[in-house]
């Protein structure tokens, strides 16, 4: 699949934003040993909303006819894209109410109603990321996406980026406990595990073949002529292919930048004093790694229409 920059930016940025607001809201709902101040909750929520909103705006850039984008909420009963759009839009009044009450000085862990609101905000953010993943996972035409690991990956990577941002932003305002950064590193480990399982999962050819695509299941089938002299919409959109060794190299880059470096920084790079710089480095490295991961998510996906352009199996 052709990796469109706007979609990569959207899924990485808003995924991180939803992860950050989910962690912030859920953390604020409970009376932990190291509670956040109202100002910190506001600052974290504001960063999350900027990330979410810039991602959502970017997602409209890949539309060929954005003037009809407002119609995208009308088929919620069947379309995961419509569900994602609706969840993303309905998230705003909920998070705004939460932010407003925090701004008014209501402690999220003080009353049952406020705790419930914080939890709804957090869970809603995660469900929105889930529905982003389901847009891809629901496509039976792309074997690499059509599995349960796809939405799980989106959620785990969103929470991982959110967790790292959470630690770094709290360290900016002076208090982040070693326990919190440790929790962030656990999220990195979980996200890494899921992603590596995904790489193994998609490694075995299992999809439709040129035989079922042409109905000649008892003979070898070879494409003689594709029938066009220049590229078409289909080859531009689905024909994108990268050399195998480059893909493997990029997988290593994604794993090292996205998971290994941030973990090493948290486990061995943090000292007693001010860790803002080190945590900032972990965040930047993780974002770069996840951006490469998201590019690979598209570049490695092989649509079955390639069977009509010469591929033997997808």
């Amino acid at each position: 699949m052709h990796p469109a920059f706007s979609v990569i930016f959207f899924t990485v940025t808003s995924g991180a934003g939803y992860g950050l607001i989910a962690i912030t809201a859920i953390y604020s709902a409970f009376d932990f040993s190291q509670p956040m101040t109202g100002a910190q909750t506001l600052m974290l929520s504001a960063v999350a909303l900027v990330l979410i909103t810039s991602g959502l705006i970017s997602s409209t850039f890949h539309l060929a006819n954005p003037k009809n984008a407002w119609r995208a909420f009308s088929r919620v009963r069947t379309s995961w894209l419509a569900r994602e759009g609706l969840l993303a839009i309905l998230f705003y009044p909920i998070v705004m109410l939460y932010v407003y009450l925090v701004w008014r000085g209501v402690d999220a862990s003080s009353s049952t109603a406020m705790t419930t609101l914080a939890l709804i905000t957090g869970v809603w953010a995660i469900v929105t990321v889930f529905s982003t993943g389901m847009i891809y996972a629901s496509l039976k035409t792309i074997r690499q996406w059509n599995n349960a690991l796809t939405p799980v990956n989106y959620i785990s990577l969103g929470l991982m980026l959110g967790g790292l941002l959470f630690s770094w932003l709290l360290s900016l305002s002076g208090n982040v406990s070693a326990n919190l950064t440790m929790v962030a590193s656990y999220m990195v480990v979980i996200a890494a595990t899921i992603k590596i399982v995904y790489f193994f999962w998609i490694g075995t050819p299992a999809g439709p073949t040129i035989n079922t695509a042409t109905s000649f299941t008892a003979r070898t089938v070879r494409l003689l002529d594709v029938g066009h002299t220049a590229g078409t919409f289909l080859t531009d959109e689905f024909g994108y292919q990268v050399a195998r060794d480059r893909l493997v190299a990029l997988r290593w880059i994604a794993i090292i930048l996205g998971f290994v470096l941030p973990s090493l920084i948290i486990w061995f790079g943090l000292g007693e004093g001010d860790n803002t710089l080190m945590l900032g480095a972990a965040v930047i490295s993780a974002f770069a790694g996840v951006a490469v991961e998201r590019w690979l998510f598209f570049a490695e996906a092989r649509h079955v229409v390639n069977l009509y352009h010469g591929a033997q199996q997808c």
């Binding site: 699949m1 539309l63 060929a64 119609r71 894209l81 035409t141 078409t232 919409f233 959109e237």
Partner: peptide, 27 residues
């Protein structure tokens, strides 16, 4: 054609390559 926003998702869902985006009209 009046409702399409050109998101390409239907073309992604079609295994037969039956759908093609018109880049001029965006649908």
């Amino acid at each position: 054609q009046d409702k399409c926003m050109g998101c390409n998702l239907c073309a992604w869902a079609c295994p037969y390559g039956a759908r093609e985006l018109d880049p001029e009209e965006g649908v």
